[in-house]
């Protein structure tokens, strides 16, 4: 287990280094000088040069990359070109929208997918199964941002149960915060729940064909008892992987959903930064998202290596 963990740690570090290089390189090639852009067309060259020095744009490429990475490692994400506030503060404000949204959606996805997948597997080939599978086909085909618009139309505009967008903030209480995240979370969760339910079902069906299920049945357990006591737990291993992957979809998908609901999360921050050419913000937020995704996948890998010893040897 220690060797496996170390191996995974090395590849985690490598992924992060390559990710940071790629992001830095992509942002580096953007045409245009942020300092000139901020000061406008009438700025004097010496003012632009002074601002470039202040923003740390006058170093070599290597210096700037190292400066960016070492800064981030110390929690310093640089200073926004346009707002002149530390990027870490801007991220700090918004991550409390994006992260809860992703977690909320993930919980909903699991809450919908597990019962649906288990139900479908236990009714294999019967109308209940066909119904659930049909619904999941539809679920994976619906774009989440369109589903979000439909939800707004029905629950915010027609029924007035929720507000159509915006975020009340956590200061107004957990309940009102959760309420403003509910429609976005449902929109995000539904397509993911459809995928998860399909994985849950097929994983369970694989398990139900295993010898240990036949043994359990031979010992006198009913089909249902064998399913609940033995199959479900074992079927969870592939399901966990997908849940790990889904977290990254939900975090990234949140960028689009935040646009639908005008939520002040990381997604909106990225878009504002892109249109204002605030490259340091774009770079840092994208890096943060990639970091979160890579670390979550790492944690999932470790979690199921801990659960299933067979996986450790693959490292």
């Amino acid at each position: 287990m220690i060797r496996y963990t170390l191996g995974r740690l090395v590849s985690l570090g490598l992924s992060l280094v390559v990710a940071s290089l790629v992001i830095f390189a992509v942002v580096e090639v953007v045409p245009g000088d942020p300092a000139a852009y901020m000061l406008g067309v009438n700025a004097r060259p010496d003012t632009v040069a002074a601002l470039r020095a202040e923003l740390g744009l006058d170093g070599t490429v290597q210096e700037r990359y190292l400066g960016w990475v070492t800064g981030m490692l110390q929690g310093d994400f640089g200073v926004s070109y346009t707002y002149r506030t530390p990027v870490s503060e801007m991220i700090g404000d918004r991550i409390w929208v994006s992260l809860p949204l992703a977690l909320y959606a993930l919980s909903l996805s699991v809450l919908i997918a597990f019962p649906a997948g288990i139900y479908a597997a236990s009714r294999r080939g019967r109308p209940g199964d066909i119904g659930v599978m049909g619904a999941t086909q539809l679920g994976v085909a619906i774009p989440n941002f369109w589903f979000a618009m439909i939800l707004v139309l029905i629950f915010a505009i027609k029924l007035r149960w929720f507000s159509a967008g915006g975020f009340s903030g956590w200061d107004a209480g957990v309940w009102s915060g959760l309420k403003s995240l509910t429609l976005p979370a449902i929109a995000l969760a539904l397509p993911q729940a459809a995928i998860l339910a399909r994985v849950m079902r097929s994983s369970l069906l694989d398990m139900l064909g295993e010898d240990f299920i036949r043994t359990a049945r031979a010992k006198g357990l009913s089909r249902r008892q064998a399913l609940w006591r033995h199959a479900v737990r074992n079927a969870l291993i592939p399901v966990l992987t997908i849940i790990g992957l889904q977290f990254s979809f939900l975090l990234a998908g949140g960028i689009v959903i935040e646009q639908v609901f005008f939520l002040p999360g990381l997604g909106r921050l990225i878009f504002q930064a892109i249109s204002a050419r605030d490259l340091i913000v774009v770079e840092s937020v994208v890096m943060l998202l990639v970091f979160l995704v890579i670390v979550v996948n790492f944690a999932v890998d470790l979690a199921y290596a801990a659960v299933d010893p067979r996986l450790r040897t693959r490292a």
Binding site: S11, V18, V26, V29, L251, I274, V286, V293
Partner: peptide, 23 residues
């Protein structure tokens, strides 16, 4: 194969947004 793993580890939508935003 390691290169593949690396691309898989990226949240695709975020990178797609980065690419289209930059280029």
């Amino acid at each position: 194969m390691r290169g593949n793993d690396l691309i898989f580890a990226f949240p695709s939508l975020v990178i797609a947004i980065l690419i289209t935003a930059v280029f």
